[in-house]
Design a binder for these strands. Structure first.
Lengths: 222, 222
DNA sequence: GGCGTCCGACTTGTATGGTAGTGTATGCAT
DNA sequence: ATGCATACACTACCATACAAGTCGGACGCC
């Protein structure tokens, strides 16, 4: 369980559960009990219930009235759609980024790439993914699309969860860092075609890695 | 108040409120009372609270703890971002639609355009917008992007609300129907460039109409 | 032994009361 | 008349109690 100290009890529980689900600490198909989670977090059922409703909006859990709440299994069609949406938005973002980009954000991104490379080399999945998220978020923010990023986050949650199955050792993570560098190269060159193509290639990585994961962990898929 | 009869009380209240907000039956800046809405819908405060939380996720309302809940004012920057996201997704959808499109959906869309033209001629705002939503939804579904459409809906809510201020008479609605036909023409010709350009032009309409609305109803904007 | 029925232990959904915090109005002192 | 402190009304938030529905197992019957 991850401790979060800000916001209301419902928000804390939701953030905690979301992290656990994406990190696969609770596996797809797991049944969640309002009661049990409530006592584990030291709150009543009501905040937990609200957390469930929040998670069900992005389909991380499925609330079946009077029957129970379960963590949704990984759906390949859903992942394909999520990737589609993410590609649509993020390629549009990098195109805009090629037009105008905040210099301050640009410098910060270099740090984030360096951080991510370090985490990858250390084999730290969680740190790697945190840095990845920060990279994409900073990209959107620097392009003046901070709000667009919010739309990406919902679908990204599903992709991140699937990525937990594909990220094994530094050899699988380091290429992703290189792809980030390629995106930045296109951006620095103010070359929309190169930047979008690099982003597109980057986001297709999950498609290439997915079949192996599905073959290896069939129980987690529906 | 609009009656909805399916789902839980919380869902019914949320759907009802969402409609009212988008239709501008309750104006931006209006303070919403849990208590009052509860008695109006014949439910307790708890489902209303959950409805508020749901609406706050897409920022249609703002819940300020211990202070009250208000309908968010129309934010021009937010609208620009919403349009950006919608353009990104929907242009990607029509590109895919040019590759493969379900023939059954294609036939249904003709009916939807006809329906919309009729509603426009009758000066029926609500019916016009319903048909518009169905048109775009059918487009996404026919292209096999039904799930992507869900991501559009959240941002579309804000755009639709602003459109309530710009749709006046049939003269403002009929051009939009023509733009829909232009998109279909590009789709039928399997011409991605023409189709995406038509979609882009269509979604820019709001930008052209917005300044007049803002000048006319400054109180509704922040 | 196989099958249908009923009961009970779960689940989520809803209602209600209490708590802490905020904004406002009111009365007092200056 | 004005500034300030205090009381009050109102809010969202949470806990608790109750209602309604579902699933599984035990039991009786065929």
């Amino acid at each position: 369980m991850i401790e979060v100290t800000t916001g209301s009890a419902a928000e804390r529980v939701e953030a905690s559960l979301r992290r656990s689900i994406i990190a696969l600490d609770v596996l797809p198909g797991t049944r969640l009990s309002e009661q049990e989670i409530a006592v584990r977090h030291g709150v009543s059922r009501q905040p937990v219930r609200e957390a469930f409703i929040g998670l069900s909006r992005t389909r991380l859990v499925e609330v079946r009235p009077q029957r129970g709440t379960v963590v949704t299994k990984i759906s390949v069609p859903r992942l394909m759609q999520a990737r589609f949406v993410r590609e649509a938005i993020e390629t549009a973002v990098v195109r805009r980024a090629c037009e105008t980009f905040d210099p301050t954000s640009r410098r910060r991104i270099d740090d984030l790439v360096a951080l991510q490379a370090e985490r990858a080399a250390a084999g730290d999945h969680a740190g790697f993914q945190r840095a990845d998220t920060l990279f994409h978020a900073a990209l959107a923010e620097g392009a003046g699309c901070a709000l667009a990023w919010e739309s990406v986050q919902d679908v990204k949650a599903h992709l991140d969860r699937a990525c937990q199955l594909t990220l094994a050792d530094p050899a699988t993570m380091l290429p992703l860092v290189e792809q980030h560098r390629a995106i930045l190269a296109g951006l620095d060159a103010r070359d929309p075609e190169a930047a979008t193509e690099a982003m597109r290639h980057h986001l297709w990585e999950i498609v290439r890695a997915l079949p192996r994961a599905e073959a290896r962990y069939p129980d987690l898929f529906e």
